[in-house]
Each structure stands twice: as structure tokens, then as C-alpha cells.
Design a protein around this nucleic acid. Structure first.
Lengths: 120, 120
DNA sequence: TTGACAATCCATGGATCCATGGAGTATAAT
DNA sequence: ATTATACTCCATGGATCCATGGATTGTCAA
């Protein structure tokens, strides 16, 4: 017979020890959430994926993906607002591209991660 | 007088050259989006932040953040579904913790990134 | 200036998300 | 068994998101 003692551990380790990680500002949480939220749809993620390869203009992406130009434009703008993409006009076209290598790493690491995770 | 020649560049570099980055599967995009979407709210990000320090149980987080237990539980479950958190029962309490170092890095890198980005 | 093309802006309706209340499940002590 | 505590499950209504159509802006060529 096992009378295992679980005796109501106070879940909070009452010890008031210091935090290792400093808490981030409200602003950081909001901006971070904006960034993640922009990436939080398969459709926008697909755009990011295409742009990993090279810059594209709006109409080109719309054509390749079989979507309306206005739809693609809105998606790209949301990604741009989150500072994930750069935007440059050349002639009649506007070219979007991955903002920097941080963003690039974020994407490739995450893609690799979820593909590995699947095999468990 | 500048008669700059912009001559209607076909935005698509018509060259059918090979893609450097291989395109990810539909599944990868969906799973990736699920992950990002789970992180895409300041409230859930705040939970992740607390857990960076150490594991916590539901009631503890609810108390610290001044929220209803059921609310915190739902948020934690969403993060857990996205495989961002582990979940372990010990006695009456259920402890949530950051899933692994990939997730930890993803968070700290992103937080650092948005804080830097702000200074531009 | 006019016309053609690329992209954005704006409003809208349908879908999705999200916090919450209340009921239900799990665990442990008496 | 009963009680208490911790958490989850489920339904709901209000908020938010999102694709789309139509009007507008910007660029270039004739």
C-alpha cells in the first residue's frame, strides 16, 4: 500500500527569489505580438516563403498564387507594417523583399522546427 | 532635362531560373502559422515571458497577472496545442513550461529584435 | 492630356477569435 | 463518501480579422 505523500505543495515556490529573465516592457510585448500575428496565417506565410527566394512585385505574386491583386497587396502591407518586409518602387512596380537576415533566420528556423517536430 | 528610361520593365524577371529555397509543404505552412498565431497576442506573449524564467502552474499565473483562472487556462492550452509549452501534473497542480530551447531562443531573439528595431 | 497599367485605399459582410460563466473532471485530505 | 482545490470543457456573445469590389493614386508612354 502506498501512502505517497503529496501533501498539498503550494504550487508557488513561495521563495521570493530573483527573476533570471528581466520582464519586457508592455511595448515590447505588443510589438512582438504584432510581428507574430502577421506571420500567423498560412497565406501570409506562403508570401514570406516566396520572398525568401528573391524579391517580387505585387502582381507577380498575385499571378503565381492565383489570387486577386488587392488581396495580395493587403497581405503584403500587413507584413510590411510589422517590419518584416521592405518595399521599393521601381517604375510602375513595387517590389517587396524580406527585411533582413533576422527575419530570414526566424522563418527558416521555424519551418525546420515544425518539420522536425512532426516526426515525433 | 532627364529623360530617364524606365521602359516598362516586366516585373517578373522572366528568366525561369531555379529557386534557391525549396518550397515548403502546405502542412509546414499551416503548422508554422499555428505556432506564430499562438504567439500573436500580447496576453499570451506575457505568459510565455513569465515561463521563460521558470515553470508555473495555472493558478499561480492567474494570481500574478490578475486574471481569471479559466482565462489563463485557455491561453496556456492554446500555447500547448502549438507545442510551445509542456504540461505536467504534480499533485493537484498542473505545471506549464517552455517546450525546449528552440522556443526559448525564438522568444528572446524576437524580443531583442523588436527592441532594437524601435531605436531606428 | 489621355490612356493603360500597377498598386493602394476604403467600406463591408462573413468568418474567426477570445474572455467568460457555469458545469464537469481529477486529485488529495478527512 | 464527502469536501476542497485545481483545472478543463463547452457554449456564447462581442470584438477582431480578412478577402473582396469599387474608387483613387501614381507612373509611364504616346
Amino acid at each position: 500500500m502506498k501512502t505517497q505523500v503529496h501533501e498539498d505543495i503550494p504550487c508557488a515556490s513561495d521563495s521570493h527569489d530573483e527573476h533570471i529573465h528581466s520582464l519586457r516592457s508592455e511595448r515590447t510585448l505588443v510589438d512582438g505580438a504584432l510581428l507574430f500575428q502577421a506571420l500567423g496565417s498560412p497565406e501570409r506565410l506562403q508570401l514570406m516563403e516566396r520572398l525568401l527566394d528573391q524579391e517580387h512585385c505585387v502582381s507577380q505574386l498575385a499571378q503565381e498564387l492565383g489570387e486577386k491583386v488587392t488581396t495580395i497587396s493587403q497581405r503584403l502591407q500587413q507584413l510590411h507594417r510589422a517590419r518584416l518586409l521592405t518595399k521599393e518602387r521601381r517604375g510602375k512596380h513595387i517590389y517587396y523583399a524580406i527585411a533582413d537576415h533576422h527575419v530570414r533566420d526566424l522563418l527558416t528556423n521555424t519551418f525546420d522546427h515544425v518539420e522536425e517536430e512532426r516526426l515525433k
